[in-house]
Amino acid sequence: MKVSGKAVVYGDDVNTDVIIPSKFLTLLDPTELSKHAMEGIDPKFVEKAKNGVVLVAAKNFGCGSSREQAPLALKYAGVKCVVADSFARIFYRNAINIGLPVLECPDASSQIEEGDLLSINLDEGLIVNETNKRVIKATKLPGFILEILQDGGLIAHIKKKGGKIRDL
């Protein structure tokens, strides 16, 4: 799987309350949700993301609540992949389950700047920063997680597997 896009960069500990504030959790339509993505931290985000971006963050991205509305809002706002030094675990799983690629990369925040063009190879766990021509190594995703992403998320994946999540 390959994705590319310009980087929008944030710092440490971006929590789910700022990714999608609680007052919007009653919205069930992801397109409606996406209009408020990152509203708690960057009111310009929706405008920036609309043509497709890679969201880059430092450590502990997505900490806080289990709201799946957070990765959903990002995905529908135009985020093609989230790359962070590290993730909070529930956000990480949620993103995979709704089919939003996530890549953990300890050097992300130090090697990527706002506006850099990134080409990402998820199968290899490699990020090419086309702007400064550097290759950054990320943590490779396990095979079955790549498969879930390739299928477009957990629901499509379970359907394809005939009611199972993994082959045992």
Binding site: I90, N94, L154, I165, R166
Partner: peptide, 18 residues
């Protein structure tokens, strides 16, 4: 442990989780 909604749908359907 806490999980998200889609993951919960998987649990509802299969009774299992990775």
């Amino acid at each position: 442990t806490g999980i998200g909604s889609t993951e919960m749908a998987g649990v509802f359907a299969t009774g299992t989780i990775w």
